Simulated scan of single mutants.
Amino acid sequence: MSRPLTFQMMDTHAGGDVSRIVLGGITPLPGATVREQMHYLRDDADGLRQLLLFEPYGIPEMSVDLIVPATDPEAAAGYIIMEVMGYPIYSGSNTICTATAVLEAGILPKREGVQRFKLEAPAGLVSIEARVENGVVEAITCEGLPSYIDTHRASIHVPEVGDVTYSVAYSGGFYALVEAAELGFDLSRDEERALADCAHKIVEAIQAERGFSHYTLGDVGPLPFLHFMGPVERVGDDFYRSRSATYVHPGVICRSTTGTGTSARLALMHHEGRIRPGDRLETVSLRETGFIGTFTGTHREGEHQVVENTITGKGYVLGHTQVVVNGDDPLVACAGLTHILEDNRSDR
């Protein structure tokens, strides 16, 4: 590649989790749905994810969201989520950031007050409610995926950790849920490395012992995530708060509590009879940021009582960037990337 190619990006964060929103410069992807386009990106163009999550452009703690045209006429836009562990079909923090970017970039014009629209994720249509005040997107409320408890208070012996009691929820991915205090953690910022190391050992032990299957998706791979739960404090008639930390990859504790982690907590609290429809849970991260999950109802899916929920947070714009991809740079890996970059060279 003799001349560099460029594409446009908006960096955002929600709860501390940085999402890099790719707004332009990528060719249309094949696929009749956003889910199929995600599969193409994963199988034939993974270079975009690798470019933006690793040096010299990024770090593994970030996420990338590629905005694509929606295939469902009800949606204002589609988006594909990329993280260090791969291509999740849904993410709360990424959805909050993408919805914010759709409005801030003018893909959908902002309107004062409460604005409702839909996005198309690989998981399907997602209803969005944005609150805009004085031209600023102050809050995004998005649907969480239907969530349920697969396993309640099982026990496993983990080398170097001991016997661990855990539950497993599905909320967009399978989560192991553990009580932080039972493992000696207060969920303070200085415990971040120790939390990541402990979570990695527990996740490896669970993966080695068993697998999990979703009631419609089937086998979605080994359990990837672990959510440390702090004590639940009641701060109002229908409002609860709990410190939390979510492990997503070796060495990586999310800066936010994660939307899917919050949905998993709602599923567990419902399973244990501790919340009612209309109740809210604020999960608070090691960095004192938070998301608010609202338990909106339940329905039955086979043998599972599935929790319907929403997640509320705020997305912040960090910057607007034109990324230059220069194949002559020895630090830049262009394999699996150049064929999806628009040919925007000046000599065309």
Rank of each mutant, 00 (worst) to 15 (best):
S346Y: 10
D219K: 07
H339L: 05
H304W: 05
G273W: 01
E233K: 14
A208E: 03
F239H: 13
E288D: 15
D279M: 06
H304K: 11
A245R: 02
R287K: 09
V284I: 15
S213P: 02
P330G: 05
T298D: 07
R300W: 05
L226C: 03
P224A: 09
V306L: 01
P231K: 10
E233F: 09
F291W: 07
F239K: 06
T260W: 09
E301T: 10
K314T: 14
L266P: 03
P330K: 03
A335E: 15
H271N: 09
R265F: 02
N309G: 11
H214N: 11
P250I: 03
G319T: 00
R234Q: 15
Q322T: 15
R243V: 09
S256F: 13
R287L: 13
H320W: 11
N309L: 01
F291V: 04
N309V: 05
T298V: 12
T283C: 14
T338A: 08
G211M: 02
P250Q: 04
V325D: 07
D219Q: 10
Y316F: 10
R345V: 06
T310V: 11
I253H: 01
G315M: 00
S213I: 09
S256Y: 11
R274C: 07
T294L: 05
L318N: 11
V332W: 02
T283V: 13
V248A: 06
T283P: 10
V248H: 02
R234W: 00
L268R: 03
L318F: 04
G230D: 04
S263N: 05
Q305G: 08
G319A: 00
I311F: 12
L226E: 01
P222N: 03
T296H: 04
V252P: 00
V325F: 07
S285R: 08
T321L: 12
V306G: 01
G251T: 07
P250V: 02
I311E: 04
V324G: 02
G302M: 05
G230Q: 05
A333L: 10
G313E: 01
F225A: 04
S244Y: 06
